[in-house]
């Protein structure tokens, strides 16, 4: 029997891969997909905790997180389209008009 730690470890690994992906990639769409990966990793944690406690609250949060991810994806992709119209690129290293 595998312990719950393994599920959580898998979630942590995926989350960290997501973070590294966000930080090192320069294609805005891929970055966004890495964010989605992070959210998925969190969902896995929530589901495993929920199963562990036999408590439905965690799954409800996953449900909301899914819905919000959908809303975020819609708006985010629209923004990416808008930036592509301006720059003809989704490379974030070329988006440097605004600097401190």
């Amino acid at each position: 029997m595998i312990s719950i730690d393994w599920y959580l470890a898998l979630s942590a690994i995926l989350f960290c891969i997501g973070i590294v992906g966000v930080l090192i990639r320069k294609n805005a769409i891929v970055i966004f997909m890495c964010v989605e990966l992070m959210l998925n990793a969190v969902n896995l944690s929530l589901v495993s905790f929920s199963s562990h406690y036999g408590n439905v609250d965690g799954q409800i949060l996953v449900f909301f997180s899914l819905a919000i991810a959908a809303a975020e994806a819609v708006v985010g992709l629209a923004i990416i389209i808008a930036i592509f119209r301006n720059n003809f690129s989704v490379d974030i290293t070329q988006i440097n008009l605004l600097r401190w």
Partner: peptide, 26 residues
Amino acid sequence: AEAALKYFLLGAFSTGFLLYGMALLY
């Protein structure tokens, strides 16, 4: 457009942390 993209990417990124925090608290 750039403002929106920066806000969006960093905002979504931070949402990941927020949600993970909630998961661990749970």
